Amino acid sequence: MFNKWINEPKYFNKEKETIIIESDAKTDFFVAPASDYLAHNAPIYAFDVQGDFTLECKVRPDFKAYYDAGAMMFYVDEKAWIKFAFESTDIGHPAVVSVVTDGASDDANGEKVDSPSIWMKLSKKDKVIGLYFSHDALEWRMVRLFQFDVKNLDKASVGLEAQSPAGLGCKVAFSDIKYTDKAVEDMRKGI
């Protein structure tokens, strides 16, 4: 399934069913809407996708600095991508964060998460993207549902990302990885 890197990691390992990715310092994917900050250097372990799909996994980042995160990425090119992250936010706690980039990035902090890991799910149906998270992989909460209508949508990749924009690096464990070439049946409920 995973067969290419978009930016090399500092460290990578596969341990049974767990993928470990560690980013270098000052790594991120973000195109600031209100400044000239631009970054597209975080490592993404990816594979090409066409049509509908769903990617799900458990994400456990080793948080050390603000913005350290483990994320799922839907990547078209440097100016068009979606980052769905479990991040150490600058509002004082880890949260589910989504960033949609079409030229410039938006940035949306979601719910506070008190556990060291969460399950995340990214699903695509035609041009509609659903982002969901769960504490137990049974009950899913929608974080965001939107249309992503960009050029070259049929030449995209999906993958796992580790980042550390303000820190010295972040190690992330991705486990319980499931992929299907179908969207979820209910795009609001994520099931």
Rank of each mutant, 00 (worst) to 15 (best):
M1R: 10
F2V: 01
E8T: 13
E8V: 10
P9V: 03
P9G: 06
K10A: 05
K10Q: 13
Y11S: 15
F12A: 12
N13T: 10
K14D: 13
E15D: 15
K16T: 13
E17V: 11
I21A: 07
E22A: 04
D24L: 13
D24W: 10
A32P: 00
A32Q: 04
S35M: 02
S35N: 05
D36W: 12
D36R: 08
Y37N: 11
A39Y: 05
N41C: 01
A46S: 12
F47D: 10
D48M: 11
D48Y: 10
D52E: 08
D52Y: 07
D52F: 09
D52M: 10
T54L: 10
L55E: 04
E56Y: 10
K58Y: 06
R60E: 15
F63G: 01
K64S: 12
A65G: 05
D68I: 02
D68Y: 09
A69F: 06
A69L: 11
A69V: 03
A71V: 12
A71Q: 13
M72C: 10
M73D: 07
M73P: 00
K79A: 00
K79S: 03
K79Y: 01
K79F: 00
W81Q: 01
W81R: 00
W81V: 01
I82Y: 03
I82M: 02
K83S: 03
F84Y: 15
E87L: 05
S88W: 14
S88P: 02
D90C: 09
I91N: 12
I91Q: 12
P94W: 03
S98M: 09
V99S: 00
T101A: 00
G103I: 04
D107N: 14
N109W: 11
N109Y: 14
G110N: 02
V113I: 15
P116H: 10
W119M: 10
L122M: 15
L122V: 14
S123A: 11
K124G: 01
K124V: 12
K124W: 06
K124N: 06
K125G: 00
D126S: 12
G130K: 05
G130Y: 08
G130Q: 09
F133M: 09
H135E: 14
D136R: 09
W140C: 03
W140A: 04
W140Q: 02
M142Y: 12
M142Q: 15
R144G: 01
L145Y: 14
V150I: 07
K151D: 06
K151Q: 13
N152L: 07
N152F: 06
L153G: 02
L153H: 01
V158H: 00
G159P: 02
Q163R: 11
G167E: 04
G169W: 07
C170P: 03
S175P: 00
I177R: 04
T180D: 08
D181T: 09
K182R: 10
K182W: 08
V184I: 10
D186H: 05
M187T: 06
M187P: 07
G190Q: 11
I191M: 13
